[in-house]
Design a protein around this nucleic acid. Structure first.
Length: 357
DNA sequence: AAGTCGCTCAACCGCTCATTG
DNA sequence: ACAATGAGCGGTTGAGCGACT
């Protein structure tokens, strides 16, 4: 009846791990893998429960963990995925393979959530607090399309998540020791049997198609807006983590963001801006090579003053569409909101017209 | 210098779901 | 089919640390 119990409850160490314990766990996993977490501590000579060992390995000792500051793109990915998936950290972590769920969750709770809140965005719903935006073009059909798209994407994401895990597991099977047994789902995610060699074999994570679309459209619109800006365009409507910069000048973005009081531009933000600027330049170059013309021209006609109108607004609209909620108040309290709505309309119009959904 | 406060993040807890016999 | 167990997930806690008073 059931599995053979292999637990031993008493005499367990708790609290922070000592370097000696880490060393024991590392040495054991490197040599034998981690087959059964339940039995591992005893075999490794650790006075810890299996759960504690798994957590320590997954969140700290795994060789493929990337530590340190989150990059601009990681920030964006987390926010976008959170808008789509909510608090499904494991799913989100699948797309940031070098980050742990714990790390992502902590980062969200301590940084991103606060920044969103500071900007007046509800970090749970990704909607602006006290304000509501219209859906794409105010067209129920578009809203329906996007709602369907979101549902589809959510389902697809789960399947994708499984595939990523399975593919990782395949790689790991090269080093699979005897007695291996998989857990509920994520043997790979747990870093089971990973060593430096196998880690290096892992395929890069696949990105969400929706995110790709989103990012490319955002980039395009921002670049276009940036051209406008340099041509003496209008003012900004807000900055999203300093990402909403459209021009080639990071200084402009910093100034605008600071002036708006949405965030403090510190060294880290500045680094983000620089990083994003480089990425934008590279992608613009790629687009120009592919299309044979300046992609920045595409949006000129309707992005006259959209320099700093932000990803956040797009995300908010996305969410309202995804949830099927159509704010539709129609009466904006100020010009900023009005402009945000207009840009959202163009943005979602672009996405809808990309087809394939 | 001592106390307080706020922040970060490693670790734990409780629940759910998958697996096993 | 069922119960027992393993493992993963997400929420929460609290130790450690720096900034501030």
């Amino acid at each position: 009846m059931g599995r053979t119990p292999c637990c031993y409850a008493d005499g367990m160490n708790r609290g922070p791990w000592t370097p000696e314990e880490d060393q024991k766990l590392l040495a054991y996993i490197q040599q034998y893998g981690c087959g059964s977490w339940r039995c591992l501590p005893r075999k490794a000579g650790l006075q810890r429960c299996g759960k504690s060992c798994r957590l320590r390995w997954n969140n700290y000792l795994r060789p493929d963990i990337k530590r340190g500051e989150f990059s601009l793109l990681e920030d964006r990915t987390i926010i976008q995925l959170h808008a789509l998936l909510g608090n499904r950290w494991s799913a989100i972590a699948t797309h940031l393979p070098k980050r742990t769920e714990n790390e992502i969750r902590n980062y969200w709770n301590t940084h991103l959530k606060k920044r969103l809140a500071m900007m007046g965005i509800d970090p749970v719903t990704h909607k602006p607090k006290g304000t509501v935006l219209e859906s794409a073009n105010g067209d129920p059909k578009n809203a329906s399309n996007l709602s369907h798209m979101a549902q589809w994407e959510s389902t697809r994401l789960e399947a994708e998540e499984r595939l990523v895990r399975e593919s990782q597991l395949c790689y790991q099977l090269y080093d699979l020791p005897p007695g291996f047994s998989s857990g509920r789902s994520s043997a790979a995610a747990s870093g089971m049997l990973l060593n430096q060699t196998t880690t290096s074999k892992l395929a890069p994570p696949r990105c969400l198609d929706v995110l790709k679309v989103w990012q490319s459209v955002m980039l395009e619109s921002m670049l276009a807006a940036g051209n406008d800006r340099h041509g003496g365009g209008g003012d900004s409507a807000g900055s999203f983590f300093g990402l909403g910069m459209g021009g080639n000048s990071c200084d402009i973005a910093s100034d605008q963001a600071s002036a708006l009081g949405f965030l403090e531009i510190n060294a880290r933000d500045q680094k983000y801006l620089n990083e994003f600027s480089e990425i934008s330049t590279m992608q613009l170059h790629k687009m120009n090579l592919a299309t044979g013309h300046n992609v920045g021209d595409h949006h000129q006609h309707h992005h006259a003053d959209g320099v700093f109108n932000n990803m956040g607004n797009h995300m908010l609209s996305a969410n309202s569409l995804i949830t099927g909620s159509n704010a539709g108040s129609g009466s904006s309290s100020n010009a900023v909101e009005e402009r945000a709505r207009n840009e959202d309309n163009y943005y979602w119009h672009d996405i809808i017209n990309m087809g394939d959904y």
